Simulated scan of single mutants.
Amino acid sequence: MIETKINEGYIVAGIKESDRLTAAVADEVKSELSSIVGGDNGKVVLNLSNIQFIDSTGIGVLISALKTARQNETLFLLCSIQKDVMSLLSLMKLDKVFEIREDESSL
């Protein structure tokens, strides 16, 4: 479900096979993302360019990944966030919690 690549020393993870981060895919995404940020990878970016919708369970997945990253001293960023998803993150004040980049080129 998560595809990774290396860009400028960052592991860039992207959610494939779905344009929604919801309860339907949350367990699989959380498990795979935890493995990535829980390792000694140093810098991880989650590219949300194809995510059109996120629900409360999806928000929980992002917060869990951030918590795991911090426990493992891994930098965790979000990038390429669609307008509607960004509006939700801003409404919940999570734009102040997560480090967010416009896109991968700004790493």
Rank of each mutant, 00 (worst) to 15 (best):
L91C: 13
K83L: 15
E32M: 11
G58H: 06
D103G: 03
Q71R: 14
Q52W: 03
F53D: 07
R70Y: 13
M92I: 11
L66Q: 13
G58A: 04
S49I: 01
E102M: 04
I2A: 07
G42S: 11
V25A: 02
I100C: 03
A65V: 03
F76M: 08
S34P: 10
N50I: 06
E99C: 11
K5C: 06
N7E: 15
L94D: 02
I2D: 12
S18N: 10
A26T: 05
M86R: 08
I2M: 08
N50Q: 12
E104N: 11
R20E: 15
L46R: 06
A65E: 03
F76S: 04
M1F: 13
D19V: 10
D95P: 04
E73F: 13
A69E: 08
D19S: 14
M86C: 06
L107G: 05
I63F: 12
V12Y: 09
F76E: 04
D103L: 01
V37E: 06
S49Y: 03
S35K: 09
M1Y: 11
L21P: 10
I54A: 14
L75M: 15
F98V: 03
S105L: 09
K96H: 12
S106F: 12
N50D: 14
L107C: 07
I81G: 13
D40L: 15
I36A: 09
V61T: 09
I15M: 06
L89M: 04
E32G: 02
L48G: 11
A13W: 04
L62S: 08
V44C: 12
A13H: 00
N50C: 06
L107W: 05
S90T: 08
I36Q: 05
Y10S: 02
E32I: 09
I63H: 04
I59P: 11
I15D: 01
I51N: 07
G42I: 07
V45M: 15
L48Q: 07
L33G: 04
I6A: 07
L62P: 01
Y10D: 12
D40R: 10
C79M: 10
Y10M: 09
K96E: 15
L77Y: 14
L94A: 00
E17L: 07
K67P: 03
I59E: 06
A65Q: 02
D55I: 15
L78I: 09
I63L: 15
S90C: 07
E28I: 11
I81T: 07
I81Q: 11
K96T: 14
I11N: 05
S49A: 14
I2S: 02
T22R: 03
L94E: 03
L77I: 12
I15Y: 05
D40I: 08
V45P: 04
L88G: 02
S105G: 01
S18F: 13
D19L: 08
V25C: 15
K30L: 09
V97I: 14
G39C: 00
D40A: 14
V12E: 10
T4D: 01
L75Q: 14
E102K: 14
A24W: 05
G58K: 01
D95W: 01
E102Y: 10
N50M: 11
K43M: 04
L91I: 07
Q52P: 05
V97C: 02
G42T: 02
L62G: 06
K43V: 03
G14L: 00
D95S: 11
K30P: 07
L62V: 00
N50V: 05
K67Y: 12
E32S: 09
V45F: 09
K5W: 00
N72T: 09
E3N: 14
S34M: 00
G60P: 10
